[in-house]
Write a protein that binds this DNA or RNA. Structure first.
Length: 419
RNA sequence: GGAGAGGUGGCUGAGUGGUCUAAAGCGCUCGCCUGCUAAGCGAGUGGGGGAUGAAAAUCCCCUCGAGGGUUCAAAUCCCUCCCUCUCCGCCA
């Protein structure tokens, strides 16, 4: 939720929203509606004060005065109800308009769309395609069974099998070792949440079509543990001295992937269900930009430890999503496609999500809204894709990166000839 | 799943239609007193939104699990939902 006061008073804040694609006419309409809302609120509050006072007098009045006083209070009530209706209409209008305004982009975010990102950094070698892409290799080596999954669950599902399962749990342990070094508290959150939570986390109504709904119960499957982690301090006031409070959630993630037909259909690059370790930070607003850099550095630490070639991009304003004021994507080289593909991303939501969540800090001066940030630590199935392709040897075997070997218990996955 | 009892401030807890402007206690903060500490005495002590103002401030509205309703007036009555506890049933 946007800060209407700042939108009204700070030109830089407003231009940040316009940079994200908010129409000036929409912003003007929202501000104008807010103006009317505040005026209507003032009118209604004065009427309410008068009515409250009249009503209170009745309690103190002598019995013979009561009737006339009740009549007077009733008259004030009729007036109040008219003003309340005006107020309610204005509130609704402001809500509707304000919800369409995205969180303003940070100064350092490049303007433009999907292709206007800035490459911050590029690490490692862009290698040519190997003999197999990850999907072929996965089937050949008995790591992924998509065919039977389709039969039982539908497209975009997979059975992860054999050494891939050890690899999954190794990645999880590896990721937790790294994030715990940085004071993230490990969490296994609920994967089902109420509608209310989806709304507050900003996923409803915009992304409702991407979310699985449980028939018979008013519950929804989370598409990322971010949803559940964001709700951890909903409506709470945290002691400012204790910030930042960091959580790392492990959960399965469920996504309908509506509107992606024909895109990334092979293997497990884009599936309806995958596991992920996600970082989430409740942060002091004064230092949230440093916190974003820290999330990014953890992501780089993980990806580079896995010996994957990658680049970091500063995502352009038009591609940020409503809540992010700035977002970095880490993209790993995928040999079979000859392209970088997203493996993690991290965002600073500033106070946009916290305002709706009611997540605040408290210090000697009073209270204020927290900043919230999130970032992927390790999205398992996608990381497996990159490990399979980049670790693939000429004989079709897969070499496990050194950093992962203590966790996984083997140094390579044998190729097809060796089976 | 069935039956019952509940949800009040940081905490305990009173309050069953009208000075509730939510008692009292505990905790916390400040002051006084005091070899020190404790005790004692006094004062203060939630959050959100808005108006006026340069500001300090002053004033108003909302907030007793959440949302509706009844009433001139709701912590209190009614409805829906959420949660907690007790008993029974079922189940890893």
């Amino acid at each position: 939720m946007i800060d209407l006061r700042r939108l009204r008073e700070e030109p830089a804040y407003r231009s940040g929203a316009e940079k994200k694609g908010a129409e000036p006419s929409l912003i003007d309409a929202a501000l104008e509606a807010d103006e009317r809302r505040r005026a209507a609120m003032h009118g209604a509050e004065e009427a309410r004060a008068a009515q409250n006072a009249a009503s209170k007098e009745i309690g103190r009045a002598e019995p013979n005065e009561r009737e006339s006083k009740i009549a007077e209070a009733s008259r004030l009530k009729v007036e109040l109800e008219k003003l309340e209706a005006v107020e309610a209409a204005a509130v609704e209008e402001v809500e509707e308009l304000a919800l369409q305004i995205p969180n303003p982009a940070h100064d350092s975010v490049p303007a433009g769309g999907e292709d206007n990102f800035i490459t911050e950094k590029e690490v490692g070698e862009q290698t040519p395609p190997r003999e197999y892409d990850h999907a072929e290799l996965g089937e050949l080596l008995g790591l992924v069974d998509s065919e039977r999954a389709v039969k039982n669950s539908g497209s975009r599902f997979a059975y992860l099998m054999g050494p891939a399962v050890r690899l999954e749990f190794a990645l999880v342990q590896f990721a937790f070792d790294i994030v715990e070094k940085h004071d993230f508290v490990p969490v296994v959150p609920p994967v089902l949440v109420r509608e209310e939570m989806m709304v507050d986390a900003g996923f409803f109504p915009t992304d409702r079509h991407q979310v699985y709904e449980i028939a018979g119960d008013d519950l929804f499957l989370i598409g990322t543990s971010e949803v559940a982690l964001a709700g951890l301090h909903r409506g709470e006031r945290l002691d400012r001295d204790l910030l930042p409070i960091r959580y790392a959630g492990f959960s399965s993630c469920f996504r309908r992937e509506a509107g992606t037909y024909g895109k990334d259909t092979r293997g497990i690059f884009r599936v309806h269900q995958f596991d992920k370790v996600e970082m989430f930070s409740f942060c002091d607003p004064d230092v949230s930009w440093d916190e974003l850099e820290m999330l990014r550095s953890i992501q780089e630490e993980i990806v580079s430890s896995l010996e994957l070639p990658y680049r970091v991009i500063n995502v352009a304003s038009g591609d940020l999503g409503a809540a992010a004021a700035k977002k970095y994507d880490l993209e790993v080289w995928l040999p079979s496609e000859g392209a970088y593909r997203e493996v993690t991303s991290c965002s600073n939501y500033t106070d946009y999500s916290a305002r709706r969540m009611g997540s605040r800090y408290r210090d000697d001066e009073g209270t204020g809204l927290l900043h919230t940030l999130n970032g992927t630590a390790c999205a398992i199935s996608r990381t497996l894709v990159f490990l399979m392709e980049n670790g693939q040897q000429s004989d079709g075997s897969i070499t496990i990166p050194d950093a992962l070997r203590p966790y996984v218990g083997f140094e390579s996955i044998p190729g097809p000839q060796q089976l």
